[in-house]
Design a protein around this nucleic acid. Structure first.
Lengths: 232, 232
DNA sequence: AGGCTTTGGTGTAAAAATCACAATAAGTAC
DNA sequence: GTACTTATTGTGATTTTTACACCAAAGCCT
């Protein structure tokens, strides 16, 4: 093989770390590989990038095929390009992470075929390829992100309680339950002005029902434009 | 061309945004392209990744060939993969930024052949490919980085004055001269404990000479280990 | 030598942000 | 209605951040 040919004997893929939150723990959506290499192993959903497809588009496609979701939060993290990361050839992969409302996730043909399943982010076992490393990097990035931008809302249903939001933050930041002071948390969050109170309140719980809040996208944009930082 | 073949009709490259600081302005090292496409245009130094070379290694190689420097600060930023970003084919590039002490930069055969030159980061004109976009992203990342980690030292000579350090921060953060309060800056920096005072003082200046400081790598590691944040 | 010019170096008080902390309210279950 | 569970709210202590002005030390000039 000539040198020029060998330069082109390579491919790129995208891998998607899909985070969800079920009220208790931070989860990641993994698939069980149906083909070699690593057949039977759990892995991050991903695919080769089509020749006429932008990287970002490929990541969106992988996400939609598996979850049926579009227009969700999706952000590139970085590229992973160790020579031997793929046993069958030279494949560089670009990792993305996305945040979805777990209740919106529906089983699509793709996810059915690949036995997709939510896993606790800290109980994933040994994954295919260098996917443990990719997951760790994305988790790190998510932790960083929630401190600098109010992205937490992306993981919750449209209407949620402040307690749910707090639990989400504690879960992402890997703090014990109650690790964030309740009063201070509420003060801070409400003080940002990106939440609006709904008319409705929580139903069907065996205790005092909580007010429901919604995320205000306009205020959020304004918030970002002014370059505020977001710290719990 | 079969579909499988076309998947492999692609290549990846690295592009390196090399930042330096000359005491006044933040600079970026650009090369003038000697070959098509974009012949004669200024561009970020970069190269295709060799078949048996890790991404990070390729970035180090590009940096060393151009500047003669090894073991300098180098960090991956992200991949750029728009379909049409390279006129001759599908090339995904991974952008890195590095911070070097501009005084250490020596003209190597590679930099001579490519007429490398330092440019003010805000006066680069129109670059080849999508390099304006890549530069903007890396600059953004650098701004972010200096607020969260004491990387500023990487751009200064081993012994430097606090005023020089402050000017560097003002330059990177795009603040007016004196945009950071001198007293508060010094308090904060010295309070971090990552600087040690040298015996020597500044020489050959027509005013009161300043004390020289050095960066203490051990304290820095400890600093990072404790997870402190760094904010000006 | 003495004064001019230039940059280096230092402290304090007000304001803001953060932190620690506990009692009452509103529902359901029995 | 009593017990149980979670929701909601405010205050004072502490820490961090900000704003701000003067004297010191060197070279230069006459």
């Amino acid at each position: 093989m000539s040198e020029v040919e060998s330069f082109f004997k390579s491919a790129f893929s995208v891998d998607n770390v899909i985070f969800g939150f079920d009220g208790g723990d931070l989860k990641v959506l993994l698939i069980q590989r149906g083909a070699a290499p690593y057949r039977g192993k759990w892995a991050l959903p991903g695919d080769l990038v089509y020749p006429n497809e932008d990287l970002d588009t490929a990541a969106e496609r992988v996400l939609e095929q598996l979850t049926g979701l579009r227009d969700v939060y999706l952000e590139q993290v970085k590229a992973f390009g160790a020579v031997d990361r793929h046993p069958l050839g030279r494949v560089i992969t670009v990792a993305y992470f996305s945040l979805i409302k777990i209740s919106n996730y529906v089983v699509t043909p793709a996810s059915f075929a690949q036995s997709a399943k939510w896993h606790h982010v800290h109980q994933v076992g040994e994954l295919a390829f260098d996917h443990n490393q990719i997951l760790a990097t994305c988790l790190q990035q998510l932790k960083q992100k929630v401190r600098n931008a109010p992205v937490g809302f992306e993981l919750l249903p449209p209407k949620f309680t402040l307690t749910a939001l707090q639990q989400l933050y504690e879960s992402v930041l890997d703090l014990p339950n109650g690790g964030i002071d309740k009063r201070n948390f509420r003060k801070k969050i409400l003080g940002m002005g990106v939440l609006v109170e709904c008319e409705e309140i929580q139903e069907g719980v065996a205790h005092r029902p909580a007010k429901l809040y919604q995320f205000d996208a306009d205020r959020y944009d304004q918030f970002l434009a002014e370059g505020y930082s977001f710290d719990i």
